[in-house]
Write a protein that binds this DNA or RNA. Sequence first.
DNA 1: CCTATGCATTCATGTAGATTAACAAATCAC
DNA 2: GTGATTTGTTAATCTACATGAATGCATAGG
Lengths: 183, 183
Amino acid sequence: MENINEILSLDSDENTRHFSKGDTLQREGENCSKAFFVKKGLLRSYTIDDKGKEHIFMFAPEGWVIADIESQEFNQPAKLFIDCVEESEVIILDRSLLIRSELNIDQLKNNVNLLSRRVAVLQRRVIMLMSASAKDRYELFLETYPKIPNRVPQRMIASYLGITPQALSTIRGEITRKNKTIL
Amino acid sequence: MENINEILSLDSDENTRHFSKGDTLQREGENCSKAFFVKKGLLRSYTIDDKGKEHIFMFAPEGWVIADIESQEFNQPAKLFIDCVEESEVIILDRSLLIRSELNIDQLKNNVNLLSRRVAVLQRRVIMLMSASAKDRYELFLETYPKIPNRVPQRMIASYLGITPQALSTIRGEITRKNKTIL
DNA sequence: CCTATGCATTCATGTAGATTAACAAATCAC
DNA sequence: GTGATTTGTTAATCTACATGAATGCATAGG
């Protein structure tokens, strides 16, 4: 849900808040009627499975919106944790932002496009998870999010890719070793 | 994208077409500006990877809409094949159906809700693919789509779950064996 | 009706990635 | 600055699932 300036303008006067690295904005089990626009910094959303293992669902750098749409849509308590990977400035939006009554036709169409884009990104992610090897997934991640890797610890990238930090480390080792032999 | 009666009413006069089991409505590489509303029957969308292996992205039974939103959104040729699992009646819709100019505010809000629902379903699928074992994924599939399993060959269910037909067969064997010992 | 092709199941073997553990480097707390 | 905790790397072992092949059934087409 990138480039959401349209919607944002409606809320820029509302409460912008400042958070430190590691602060949690939403916990599993809470009621979650909020969405978070990232003005500055980097947030992430993730689940923790029954074995206590984290699975990162998405990263949200500057200009992105992050929320637990599944739980909101089905009126369930939150399944996702949302917290800060970096010190961040966040505008807290209401869940209704996408269909609030003040919106005009053009703004609604814009929202339809934003959601279509989000569906498209998720479609790509599902197909990737089903058909690509760990190495391919890592390389696709680097292409898709060229600016994020150096801001995020390896273990979180591994978690986003659905593999262990050890496996990612091995893959990175292979890639740099291959590049050395080429150079 | 279930229960799309709102949108449908706009197009019910357009060309409804009849297809046989196995007929292909869209191929990889084609320009894909269409979406398909399933009036009767069952469609599926899938990719074929570089090793020639099918990966089913979704099933669309009666009342659902199916389309390659990713490719449409990024203006690329289709990544997905779409074909008929059963004999089907399909209304062919234009890609612009979600933001076409005749739509009023309520219809647009309805579209926002439909897309939110789709995002929610995909969120669930991504989390499942990342964190659940093959057996858990199969059981979740049975819960989520209780009506589909008996209409779809095992190998397609396996493909949807991201495992081989052999692995699914083993899992099914385990489940029925366990149920027998309980009874 | 009979043959051919596809489908589900089972088993034997292979492999990507998980798990466990050990260690060095970086970061944090005080 | 110093000890403690977190992070990234490497290596040895383990396991879930893939791959490949054989077999019995079903469905389709002549």
